Simulated assay, not measured.
Amino acid sequence: METLKFKTNIKCGGCIATVTPFLNDLNTVQSWKVDVDSADKVLTVEGSASAPEVINILDKAGFKAEKI
């Protein structure tokens, strides 16, 4: 299992609710969480997903992500 981290523009619980179905539908994502208290709003993804796959799915949900 690989851990990927992304700087995002996910700011609040409502944003997390919006991205939840998108990230949960990815078979390659086993778990994920967003640290909305950090300045970079870091999304941590565990599983076998690739960085472009996660960035693309967040884009479809209306959010930006940059691998860190």
Results as ranks from 00 to 15, higher is better:
41 K>S: 02
42 V>D: 00
8 T>E: 09
47 G>I: 01
9 N>V: 10
26 L>K: 05
39 A>K: 14
47 G>F: 03
25 D>S: 15
21 P>V: 04
33 K>P: 04
22 F>P: 03
34 V>Q: 04
25 D>Q: 10
22 F>V: 00
39 A>T: 15
11 K>D: 12
9 N>E: 00
38 S>K: 06
19 V>L: 05
41 K>H: 09
20 T>K: 15
24 N>H: 07
20 T>P: 09
25 D>N: 15
26 L>Y: 01
48 S>D: 14
9 N>R: 06
40 D>N: 14
13 G>M: 03
47 G>L: 07
44 T>I: 12
47 G>M: 08
39 A>C: 12
50 S>D: 09
7 K>H: 02
25 D>V: 01
14 G>A: 13
42 V>M: 10
17 A>S: 13
19 V>S: 05
45 V>I: 09
29 V>G: 08
33 K>Q: 14
36 V>I: 15
23 L>T: 03
13 G>F: 01
30 Q>F: 01
21 P>W: 04
7 K>P: 03
30 Q>V: 07
10 I>Q: 04
17 A>T: 06
42 V>P: 00
19 V>H: 02
45 V>R: 09
8 T>L: 11
20 T>D: 10
41 K>R: 13
31 S>Y: 06
42 V>S: 08
30 Q>M: 06
44 T>C: 14
30 Q>D: 14
6 F>K: 06
19 V>P: 01
33 K>L: 10
23 L>S: 05
32 W>Y: 11
48 S>R: 10
39 A>W: 07
27 N>L: 05
5 K>C: 01
26 L>R: 08
45 V>E: 00
19 V>E: 01
15 C>I: 10
24 N>I: 02
17 A>D: 06
44 T>H: 14
16 I>P: 05
6 F>H: 01
33 K>H: 02
39 A>L: 14
4 L>Y: 08
13 G>L: 04
37 D>Q: 15
26 L>S: 06
38 S>D: 13
24 N>W: 04
12 C>L: 07
27 N>T: 09
4 L>A: 13
36 V>Y: 11
26 L>N: 04
12 C>S: 14
22 F>W: 05
46 E>N: 15
16 I>R: 03
30 Q>H: 04
49 A>Q: 04
36 V>P: 11
25 D>A: 15
32 W>D: 02
46 E>F: 07
36 V>S: 08
47 G>Y: 10
44 T>W: 12
35 D>S: 15
15 C>A: 09
18 T>G: 06
48 S>E: 10
9 N>F: 09
48 S>T: 14
14 G>I: 11
30 Q>T: 12
29 V>N: 02
14 G>P: 12
16 I>C: 04
19 V>T: 00
49 A>G: 10
33 K>D: 14
22 F>E: 00
43 L>V: 13
26 L>C: 04
